[in-house]
C-alpha cells in the first residue's frame, strides 16, 4: 500500500510543482502553442505565427511568453495538451492543424480562452467557425491554379486530377475544381483512388485519355509517388502542376501555392489583435490566405516548351533556386 501511495503522491507533487514553477512568470500573458507534430509546413506555420506577433509590435519575453507543445501526431496527446493549456488559463491558445485545434477548442469549452488556429483546410466542416475561435485556413488556391494553367497553356482543354476518396481535403478540392473549371474553359477528368499503389495506374489511364495536363492536390497518396508519376507524364509530354513548392522542386512545371510562413504571419497578426484587446476571437471570421506564391521549375518549363507570360515571369519564384 505504501508503494502505491508513494507513486500517487509523487505524481501529484510533481504535477503541482511543475505547474507552480510556471506560476511565477504569471504577469506576462502566456500563449500556448499546440502543434500536431513536426513537419516542414507546420513548423513554418509556427515560425510565421511568432513573426506575425512581432510584426504587430509584441515582443516575446516582454509582452508574452510561449509554451510550445507538440502532440507527436497523436490525437490523445493533443487532447491532454489542450487541457494543460486550459487548466493553466493561458491568455491564448494557438493550434496548428485540425486535431490540435479540435482538442484546444474542446478543452476551452466552458472557458473564455480564445483559440487561434492555422493550417486547417475546412474550418466549417471541423465546426471551428463559431465560438471564441478564429484563425487561418490553408485551403488550396484552386482559382489561382486554374488561372496559372490557363496562362501557361492557352490551348489546354482537359485537366486530369488523381485524388484519394477517403481524404476529405481532396474530395472538397475536387468539387471546387469541377465548379470553377468551366469559367476558365477547362473540363476536369478526376480519377478517385483508395490506396497509393493505384495512383500510378490512374496516371496511366489519364495519359491514355490524352489530358492536356495534370494538376495535383495536397493528396498524400499522390504526392508520395509523384516521382513515379512524373516519369510517365514526362515521357508522354504532359506537364503536371503541383500544389506547393516541394512538388515543383521534384519536377512539376509550376504551382500556385501557399507560403506557410506567410499563413503563419497572418495568423500571428490576428492573435496580436486579440492579445491587445482590439478584437475578440468570436468576432473575427476565419481567413483564407490573401496572397499566393507562383512557383516555377524552369528546367521543366523548357522541356515542355512553355514560355512564361511576362506578368507571371515577374512574380514567379524559381523553385530550384529557392533554399
Amino acid at each position: 500500500m505504501k508503494k502505491i501511495l508513494s507513486i500517487v503522491l509523487a505524481l501529484t507533487f510533481l504535477l503541482s510543482f511543475a505547474a507552480c514553477a510556471k506560476d511565477a512568470e504569471k504577469e506576462i500573458p502566456v500563449i500556448g502553442i499546440s502543434q500536431y507534430g513536426e513537419h516542414s509546413s507546420l513548423d513554418n506555420c509556427r515560425d510565421g505565427f511568432l513573426q506575425g506577433l512581432k510584426k504587430a509590435g509584441l515582443e516575446e519575453g516582454k509582452d508574452f511568453t510561449v509554451d510550445y507543445q507538440n502532440a507527436n501526431f497523436d490525437d490523445a496527446t493533443a487532447t491532454q495538451i489542450g487541457q494543460n493549456f486550459s487548466s493553466k488559463n493561458y491568455a491564448l491558445m494557438c493550434a496548428i492543424a485540425t486535431p490540435s485545434a479540435t482538442a484546444c477548442f474542446a478543452a476551452a469549452e466552458d472557458k473564455d480562452i480564445p483559440v487561434v488556429f492555422t493550417a486547417i483546410t475546412d474550418p466549417v466542416a471541423a465546426k471551428l467557425d463559431k465560438g471564441n475561435i478564429t484563425g487561418t485556413s490553408d485551403k488550396l488556391p484552386v482559382e489561382a491554379q486554374l488561372q496559372l494553367i490557363r496562362a501557361l497553356q492557352p490551348d489546354a482543354k482537359t485537366i486530369g486530377i488523381i485524388y484519394t476518396t477517403s481524404e476529405p481535403n481532396s474530395v472538397s478540392a475536387i468539387a471546387e475544381y469541377k465548379e470553377k473549371a468551366g469559367s476558365f474553359g477547362f473540363t476536369i477528368e478526376a480519377i478517385g483512388i483508395t490506396a497509393q499503389a493505384e495512383a500510378v495506374q490512374a496516371a496511366d489511364k489519364l495519359i491514355a485519355q490524352k489530358v492536356d495536363c495534370l494538376s495535383n492536390l495536397t493528396d498524400n497518396n499522390v504526392v508520395g509517388v509523384i516521382s513515379a508519376i512524373l516519369e510517365k507524364t514526362d515521357a508522354a509530354g504532359i506537364p503536371i502542376y503541383g500544389s506547393e513548392i516541394e512538388q515543383v522542386k521534384k519536377g512539376c512545371v509550376a504551382s500556385a501555392g501557399i507560403d506557410y510562413i506567410k499563413l503563419g504571419i497572418q495568423t500571428g497578426e490576428m492573435a496580436a489583435k486579440i492579445l491587445k484587446g482590439e478584437a475578440k476571437a468570436s468576432d473575427i471570421p476565419y481567413e483564407t490566405i490573401s496572397e499566393y506564391e507562383t512557383y516555377v521549375n524552369n528546367d521543366q518549363l523548357k522541356k515542355f516548351n512553355i514560355t512564361l507570360p511576362a506578368d507571371i515571369q515577374d512574380k514567379a519564384i524559381d523553385a530550384l533556386a529557392a533554399e
Binding site: L14, A18, A19, D67
Partner: peptide
C-alpha cells in the same frame, strides 16, 4: 500530463 507540464523540448514528450 506530467511530461507536458515539465516543459522539456516538445519532441522529447
Amino acid at each position: 500530463q506530467l511530461a507536458i507540464t515539465i516543459g522539456l523540448p516538445a519532441n522529447l514528450l
